[in-house]
């Protein structure tokens, strides 16, 4: 499919990520390398990830720090260019879009960031911050209509139109995140990439923001790519969940399946690590070990050094994502060979 051909029938798939990889050169400067006789060091932050997101749904990516989930978010938004693979938005290859097409494309997706203190320019008034996408995409001109639109956006996210005159430092963390959301909504996007939008917030504020995001999704038919390390939040907000480990997706399935019947041993481990707020007295089974250094990932399945079910094949051969009869896809030799007990958890 080329960048310009529009599908005849409007596909239900809004975003398609095909075998995307991103490598960072983290080598020392040339002179140091020569003197210390070191090789170039390549960090494979994302190593061949494929997924699709349907219109109106929320796909979450979960994983521990260093698993590449935030890199995927930035690749989708065009902040990084992929080292390999392609990203298609509404059937258009983003790498091939240029000029006007690209600008129109950019207006259709926006991003919400993690740190409400760093994501708003401290020297800009909130009104200017929210108006920026509108002006950049030519959706309005400075004037009363624009001010009215900014006021409307502020009202939509639960702030007052009068807040447009304030500076970011006059707001609390949760209010700033509302401003971020208002900015993201101002170009009328269909698709929002949310990179840990609530992980810097207190629980009661997190609840406000999650509720707001759900309300907005319903009202505007938004599609979300939601990045988080918090499984409880993910289970609340998403329709489907992808679990990432060391730059690879290990399991993708709808939320219910992931949380009631986790297949991949890593997913099972994450599942058991969720703090038990209901105090059912369930025994935690903490998995030994930590995420290995991504500069020197293990051979075969990256999870095998921590996996209780690993065998010779896991050390040698990298598992591919395959469909599972229970729904979704999983990349695990053990699951494929039916060596791993499937744990069913009560919903």
């Amino acid at each position: 499919m080329t960048g310009q051909t529009m599908p005849i029938e409007k596909s239900n798939i809004l975003l398609e990520v095909r075998d995307v990889a991103k490598e960072f050169d983290v080598s020392k400067p040339w002179l140091n390398r020569v003197i210390e006789r070191q090789e170039r060091q390549i960090l494979k932050a994302v190593d061949g990830v494929s997924f699709t997101i349907n219109r109106g749904e929320t796909l979450s990516l979960v994983g521990e720090s260093g698993c590449g989930k935030s890199t995927v978010a930035r690749l989708v938004c065009g902040l990084y260019t992929p080292s390999r693979g392609s990203i298609h938005f509404d059937g258009m290859d983003m790498a091939k879009a240029e000029g006007d097409v690209l600008r129109k494309l950019r207006a259709r997706f926006q991003m919400i960031f993690q740190d409400p203190y760093a994501s708003l320019n401290p020297r800009w008034r909130v009104g200017k911050i929210i108006a920026e996408p509108i002006l950049v995409h030519g959706l309005g001109k400075p004037g009363d209509a624009l001010n009215e639109r900014v006021g409307e956006l502020l009202t939509q996210v639960g702030l007052s139109p009068l807040d447009a005159e304030k500076f970011p430092h006059e707001f609390s963390g949760g209010q700033r995140q509302r401003v971020s959301i208002a900015r993201a909504l101002s170009s009328n996007p269909e698709f929002l990439v949310c990179d840990e939008p609530t992980s810097a917030l207190d629980v009661s504020v997190q609840a406000q923001i999650l509720n707001l995001m759900k309300d907005l999704q319903r009202e505007f038919g938004l599609t979300y790519l939601f990045i988080s390390h918090n499984l409880a939040v993910v289970s609340h907000i998403s329709n489907r969940v992808g679990v990432m480990y060391l730059g690879r997706l290990v399991e993708v399935a709808d939320t219910k399946r992931i949380f009631t019947m986790p297949l991949h041993p890593y997913t099972q481990m994450l599942q058991s690590a969720i703090p038990d707020l209901k105090m059912t007295g369930k025994q935690r089974t903490p998995v030994a070990g930590e995420v290995p250094n991504p500069l020197t990932p293990p051979t075969g399945c990256a999870f095998h050094p921590r996996c209780p079910h690993a065998n010779e094949r896991c050390k040698r051969e990298r598992p591919e994502m395959i469909d599972h009869p229970g729904g979704g896809q999983v990349a695990c030799h053990g699951v494929e060979e039916k060596r791993i007990n499937i744990i069913k958890l009560a919903a």
Binding site: A207, A232, T260, A347
Partner: peptide, 20 residues
């Protein structure tokens, strides 16, 4: 009520309006 819980099927979380 504001803490999301795995397995809870409520559409919205209980929410305390305002901030500290």
């Amino acid at each position: 009520g504001a803490i999301p819980n795995v397995g809870d099927n409520n559409e919205r979380l209980a929410q305390i309006d305002g901030s500290m």
